[in-house]
Design a protein around this nucleic acid. Structure first.
Lengths: 116, 116
DNA sequence: CTAACATATGAATGTATGATCATATATTCA
DNA sequence: TGAATATATGATCATACATTCATATGTTAG
């Protein structure tokens, strides 16, 4: 008994097969978290800006026409999700995409939108 | 004047450059919507199940151990986002992923999680 | 040291959203 | 036709979350 509901009539084989190939619950949560990090227009625009170059918070806010606070809060989410990394230089903090996987996810999403 | 805030002192060039390469606001919204559709554990698990085969609502619910209503509601989101398509056969409705782009996004997200 | 600047963060608030429950619609079967 | 089955959907409710405002922390310049 690998844990799915067997206490009622179901077309056993298909369901059992589907269940056995299902990703683990905690993986589903992590994966959802990853996509959640990209699931907001402001964060998408931040990612978009960082696709081309690194930027400090102030310049990001200016380029996106968002408040410094809003940008900073969103960067926090992106940091926690490891979608961006940063380096400090004096009183500035420069952000960039964490790796190519992120750029790739972003680009593929964009392709799907544009060819849809 | 392409629309970004110029009414205060900024390091013009970097900001102007970043702003000019930014994706359009409505594209950002669409892209966010796409990722939003993948930004929930239940929907991720549904996608996961449909990665291998098409399934009807009832079997999906059984395999995922979710209520029929919850699955149906989530399938609605996925339908509206064009992540899944369906065919009716008698009283059953069989769902499958809409295209390879979706499978691809899902897989790449999964890779990012697993190699992270 | 003080003022100005850059960033981060906590609280408050309005909005979005996922699950459940009840119910509606549609199809098959006896 | 009526019962059973499969799916969809509206209402409700609790929770999550994005923005704003106020403020704290840290850095540089004068």
């Amino acid at each position: 008994m690998s844990g799915f509901r067997e206490d009622r009539f179901v077309d056993g084989d298909k369901v059992r097969q589907a269940h056995s190939k299902l990703i683990d619950g905690s993986v589903a949560i992590w994966l959802a978290e990853l996509f959640k990090a990209l699931a907001d227009p402001s964060r998408v625009r931040i990612i978009s800006a960082l696709t081309h170059t690194e930027l400090c918070v102030h310049d990001l806010a200016a380029a996106l026409d968002m408040s410094q606070s809003a940008v900073s809060h969103q960067l926090r989410s992106l940091r926690e999700m490891r979608l961006v990394r940063y380096r400090k230089e004096g009183r500035h903090v420069y952000y960039q995409l964490d790796d190519e996987h992120i750029r790739d996810l972003y680009r593929r999403g964009l392709e799907h939108i544009e060819h849809g």
